[in-house]
Amino acid sequence: MTKQKTIVILSPGFPADENDTTCIPSMQIFVKGLKQNKPDLHIVVVSFQYPFKAARYNWHEVEVIALAGKGKGQLYRLMTWRRVWQTLKQLHSRYELIGLLSFWMGEAAYMGKRFAKKYNLPQYTWLLGQDAKAGNHYVKQVKPQAGELIAISDFLAREFSINYHIKPQHTIPTGIDTSLFGSMPNIREIDIIGVGSLIPLKQYNLFIQVVKSLTIQFPQIKAVICGKGPEMEVLQKQISKLKLEDHIELKGELSHPEVLALMQRSKILLHTSAYEGYSTVLSEGLYAGCHVVSLVKGMDSRPPQHHVPGNVENIPALIKELLHDPNLLHEPVLAYPVETIANRVAALFGC
């Protein structure tokens, strides 16, 4: 009997069900897009740590095997890796594996590379952000070849090359699913939106300071920040101290569709992150009709609606210019459709 051609995706986490839209939205969109564009290809996701309950289930016609490592310590992690190995052996016996794709240069890449080497399978690691920084001990353990690496952006490819003297051969950003967006509203009542985890790296303290500086010329300015994280209380105190309660609202964690709807009601997406491979949020903001302002330039080429001020001090002046422009257009800009991204990755495996 002919075995079904299968790609195995290895990831630290994956949605617990189809309603879990907040778990790594960019990877959700990619996996779903890959299945939709290659319906005859069987896809299995092996998730190491999350969901926290071990299970096998179907997610948008994708087979998911959750091993529930729960992010526990070293001994428990080794046990999880052993279960990963046994799972991969079972999949290898059951299906015709045409390759493995690991999300992040971490434990998924380590296990994927070991298994692929033993069974002579193609394996690619998608570098997605901080895994390209210096000090990632998994790089030494994985010993990746340039041809096995996919960088999410030109910036990340250079970063990895500088830190590890290996230039990823492939640069593929994550795509967006245009079907998740509703119709464009007639009014954009939100001046500035921020989207992301409330962690120090994202520098939402800077976001708040920028809004404060803009209140002088824009006394009715409205801003929202979508996301949760350990900085929530600190940021709320900063907002109160600067008397910005009428200007900035911390929305907390929202579903992915809710975030996209807010983007479509916003004029500017301000991304203050100090380091970013290439956030899918930027592409989503552009398609939502926002003008995007970010400190990090992920791709060497970008649409004119994506503004990179060069330094922190230039952000307020840039946003003032945009808000003062009576002819500011909010047309959707589609930079990276998921269909294109899915086909590019699939092509690496000969699909």
Results as ranks from 00 to 15, higher is better:
Arg82Asp: 08
Ile192Ser: 00
Ile150Lys: 09
Pro219Ile: 06
Val46Glu: 01
Leu235Gln: 02
Gly277Val: 02
Met79His: 14
Val195Arg: 04
Leu348Ser: 11
Leu323Lys: 09
Ser301Phe: 13
Leu128Pro: 00
Lys113Thr: 10
Glu321Leu: 07
Ile9Tyr: 07
Leu334Tyr: 03
Thr125Gly: 08
Trp85Ala: 05
Met263His: 04
Ala288Arg: 03
Leu235Asn: 00
Leu322Met: 15
Pro304Ala: 10
Asn136Val: 05
Lys35Val: 12
Met263Glu: 12
Lys32Ser: 12
Gln90Arg: 06
Asn314Asp: 13
Met184Val: 03
Trp59Ile: 01
Gln169Gly: 09
Met232Glu: 07
Tyr138Ser: 01
Tyr124Glu: 05
Thr340Gln: 11
Asp131Glu: 00
Thr272Glu: 14
Cys290His: 08
Ala335Tyr: 06
Tyr57Thr: 10
His271Lys: 08
Asn186Val: 11
Lys297Arg: 12
Arg265Gln: 15
Gly106Asn: 12
Gln209His: 14
Met299Cys: 04
Pro219Lys: 13
Thr340Met: 12
Asn58Gly: 04
Val345Phe: 15
Asn58Leu: 14
Ala132Trp: 07
Ser47Gln: 00
Gly106Trp: 15
Val139His: 02
Pro122His: 11
Ile248Glu: 02
Gly135Trp: 13
Ile239Phe: 13
His170Cys: 11
Ile268Met: 14
Ile199Val: 04
Val296Cys: 11
Ile208Asn: 02
Gly350Trp: 15
Pro51Ile: 00
Pro39Asn: 04
Tyr204Gly: 06
Pro303Ala: 12
Ile315Leu: 01
Asp325Tyr: 07
Ser179Glu: 15
Ala347His: 12
Gly99Cys: 09
Leu156Ala: 01
His256Ile: 06
Trp126Glu: 09
Ile193Gln: 07
Ala261Arg: 08
Val292Met: 08
Gln220Cys: 10
Glu189Ile: 05
Ile239Met: 05
Gln169Tyr: 10
Phe181Arg: 15
Ser266Pro: 01
Lys297Met: 08
Ile65Ala: 06
Lys72Gln: 14
Glu63Trp: 10
Val293Met: 09
Leu262Ser: 12
Lys241Glu: 06
Gly182Thr: 08
Gln264Gly: 03
Val45Gly: 04
Tyr57Lys: 00
Val308Glu: 14
Asp300Val: 10
Gly147Tyr: 13
Ile190Tyr: 01
Asp154Val: 07
Gln74Asn: 06
Ile176Asp: 01
Gly135Cys: 04
Lys297Glu: 11
Gly194Met: 05
Leu260Phe: 05
Gln74Phe: 15
Ile315Thr: 00
His247Glu: 09
Ala68Gln: 06
Lys5Asn: 12
Ser47Trp: 00
Ala146His: 09
Ile239Tyr: 00
His271Gln: 13
Leu101Glu: 06
Cys351Thr: 08
Lys113Gln: 08
Lys228Ser: 15
Cys226Lys: 03
Glu331Tyr: 02
Glu249Arg: 13
His165Tyr: 11
Cys226Trp: 05
Leu328Tyr: 01
Lys89Gln: 13
His42Pro: 01
